[in-house]
Amino acid sequence: MTDVTVPKPDMIKADGPQRDVSSRDFTVRRRSQSALVLRRFLQHRLAVISLVVFLVLVLLSLFAETWWQYTSTTITDDLSQGPSLKHPMGTDSTGHDLLAKVLAGARVSVLVALLVAVLSTAFGTVFGALSGFYGGRADTLMMRFVDLILTVPSLAILITLGATIAGGGGDPIVIALILASLSWLQIARIIRGLFLSLREKEYVEAARCLGASNRRIIFRHLLPNAVGPIIVNATIVVAVAILAETALSFLGFGIKFPSTSLGLLVAEGQSAASTRPWLFYFPGLVIVLIALTINFVGDGLRDALDPQQNRVRA
């Protein structure tokens, strides 16, 4: 862990190749920026734990067939059983093992949520950045467009899109696209506001004075300074996307049988919340777990990417 190389006594005595230490103030090993970011991330204990939990969850659901005896479509003889060793999360009324269904659902839900987060963050950031950076008439047009979409109830749009584009098929990627088409709006507004203030910074003027192009200023100077809000919003979008997918599936316009998702499972289990609570609580718990861990990972990432942040957590 020592970064300062202290001349060892035997090194000084030796006649051989002796490093000239006196000519330098002190010697610091050159640390690459990525190593520093990693180091800061690893210091964020909650983020590391969350990342591990999240990855374990994803791996378990991806390779469910290899370690769990049932699949989401296996029908067993145990109908509406509570949690037991044989069925850790119980079974539903047709005899499906809930753990198998939750694993399959998590796979779809995580795919949808991450896809929504990536797509909407990428598009929303670029849209907001251009709007905020150029300002003026383009900004007005772009932002009124965003306002226009935001005034329409989002659920109505989701249902319409879900019924028409998805064509009742319930393809997770199509569902992700539909959800992303609405969730980039908030990100665009936040980034636009941020860019409005960032573009007036003196270091932007300095870059312009050096002859930097607008593209360079946007991507090299402004975006890195907007990373914090971008990541925080992306993690929020993950949680929101899972919930939106739940709502859509609940209404019958999202993921459909035989495919499944955590949202669909919660929707199915909701009617049985009082009689067979395991059907409702276990998928719900996994949703909360995913949303929470992603938020903490995002928190850790934001701190790690901020060079001025050097607080070491206990």
Binding site: E202, Y203, E205, A206, H221, P224, N225, P307, Q308
Partner: peptide, 11 residues
Amino acid sequence: FQDPFASLNPR
């Protein structure tokens, strides 16, 4: 620049 704090990109 006058202000050496504001004129250097903190990132």
